[in-house]
Design a protein around this nucleic acid. Structure first.
Lengths: 136, 136
DNA sequence: CCAAGGCTGAGAATCGTTCTCATGACTCGC
DNA sequence: GCGAGTCATGAGAACGATTCTCAGCCTTGG
């Protein structure tokens, strides 16, 4: 299969960093994280690795309001959505069977085909809310 | 209230360009469009105007998969979503009462607060599909 | 018509992301 | 273990979208 993909120290490091958290992280955050941890990896390599993982469906990608890409290794490969904490990136995988069918139905009723949808929920997780309460 | 906001030729031009279409357009597209039309407006001004309009809720903004911002003047100011043609930008405003409540419910059940959601549908509109069929 | 302060635009500066290219690291066959 | 052929890496340049700077212009209130 992917005889083409060599398992290098760098790829392992990036994958490891992703495995170590269930929060969405930007490429730059992962890059810093690896550097601080001692597993320095070039920024370009981090981007390339994330790209490859995303293409293979091994990590999920989403965009913040200002267009930055965030990555996360999810437990499941099947289609799902996320509830993400806007302050710490903590995420919960969620299903929305109802939403799925709604999307397809609405799309079709308007004559559109090849319907896809972008559905992400943003909020403040319990921990962050508590933290905010203490400091405020 | 917005005594602060002066009505200038440039702002009128940008607003006009937005009013003239129901498709999502990027700042750069609008900039070119205005130039071609003879109402040249500086790119910076286009961005500033769109930003102001978006802040005032007068235009809707969404992000393409690669992070570019698209703008559109919508008929309604109330919360709604869109079904957008990924090839021409044509958009239809849609409601999703079911989805709205689902989002809030899911968020709350996970202990998150201040839930917001990003829900956009992408597809190929009938016209674009027909066009593709002819050329393919 | 005047003054005052928001507005504009060209170009520089940012920022995230991708590309280039010389060098480095795997892998396979011997 | 050795060498060739490749894919991978990383520093830095290049890019594309967006924002900032700042001197000069225009709108508005009087």
């Amino acid at each position: 299969m992917n005889q083409q993909l060599r398992m290098t120290k760098q790829r392992a490091a990036v994958a490891g960093a992703l495995d170590a958290t269930d929060e969405f992280r930007s490429a730059q955050q992962l890059h810093e994280l690896l550097r601080d941890r001692g597993d320095a990896v070039g920024l370009a390599t981090v981007y390339r690795t994330l790209q490859a993982l995303a293409a293979g469906g091994e990590v999920d990608v989403l965009r913040t309001d200002d267009g930055e890409a965030l990555y996360r290794r999810c437990a499941r490969t099947e289609h799902h959505h996320h509830l993400v904490c806007r302050s710490c990136g903590h995420a919960v995988e969620i299903d929305g069977p109802t939403v799925e069918s709604w999307a397809v139905r609405v799309g079709a009723s308007q004559g559109f085909s090849d319907i896809e949808h972008t559905i992400e929920l943003w909020g403040t997780c319990a921990d962050c809310r508590a933290a905010a309460a203490h400091s405020g």
